[in-house]
Amino acid sequence: MSGVADDTAVVVDQVSKKFRLFHERNQTLKSAVMRRRRIVADDFWAVRNVSFEVPQGETFGLIGRNGSSKSTLLKTLARIYVPDEGRVVMNGRVSSMLEVGSGFHPELSGRENIFLNGSILGLTRKQVTARFDEIVDFSGVETFIDQPVKNYSSGMYVRLGVAVAVHTDPDILIVDEILSVGDGAFIEKSRKKFLEFTGQGRTIILVSHSLPQVREMCHQVAWLDGGRLRAVGPTDEVVAAYGASIEAESS
């Protein structure tokens, strides 16, 4: 990693991401042939020239209104999207929780799904086995662990998904809004787990719409507005500026 200081976990360097907006929605062979290779599309820059650095062991928040491309940026960090310009450097193993329980197979049992989901998130079978009891304990679904997950309540489903994800022990964890699900006790449990994470020198990048939560958890915050970086810095300053702008607009 040339040019990156050892205590920097994530470098986002002038990242831009564009999508093509097709005017004709139906992607059929017929319409492609009829258009004769002439693709009717506009480029839409969802993320434009965003740069920031995240120091190791910190929690970094992304805030902004709906449609400000927080999730697109997060997906670019998680390697799900490829940036069209700029670069993203990740110092360490990355794990992402953009949706809990993605990859759960409804007909398989909770136990089987823990192993399946663990390996999707990059764990070996041995690592999952070592953490199995912890995961089950964290999720609180012990009694139902051998039932197919389609019989789970939505709360149990989410708790099991979060439990697997927080036990992947990545160096950098990318989280999208998942703390807005689950009951109060479970959110508290997850929050403690995150604090433990950063205490161990791991880095968390999260998106949240809950400003109190951001204030409480994040060391630094980036404020996105229409795909551009409006401000980045210590949580209190940026959140205050963001809050003021929302208030100004609604009054």
Partner: peptide, 19 residues
Amino acid sequence: TRELLLNLTMREVKGQYRR
């Protein structure tokens, strides 16, 4: 990431004829 391949394979095999 070959272990993921094995797990996805098991998902297909086990899920196919459940129930």
